[in-house]
């Protein structure tokens, strides 16, 4: 790991920021994977919910 001076134009008050070298955007990608995992689980939860709702509304046999 090395330290890279990273000058930024936008940070007018903190003219030089020292950031530990990180893979650019990797945090966003990890966050995206977590979201995808959450949505993936949601897909099955919705299936289970639909199944329960369908069963509830199914007319009972005499």
């Amino acid at each position: 790991m090395f330290v890279e001076p990273h000058s930024t134009v936008l940070l007018s008050h903190a003219s030089i920021a020292f950031l530990l070298y990180t893979d650019p955007g990797s945090g966003i990608l990890v966050w995206q994977l977590l979201l995808a995992a959450f949505f993936g689980a949601m897909f099955y939860l919705r299936k289970v919910k639909d199944l329960i709702v369908r069963r509830r509304h199914r007319p009972r046999a005499e």
Binding site: T22, S26, I28, V30, L34
Partner: peptide, 21 residues
């Protein structure tokens, strides 16, 4: 916050996040 924190947490990148799922 979360992307920044997650990026810092995994600064010792082994490339696993880029594997196709």
């Amino acid at each position: 916050f979360f992307p920044h924190w997650l990026g810092k947490k995994r600064s010792n990148n082994n490339g696993s996040i880029y594997q196709q799922r």
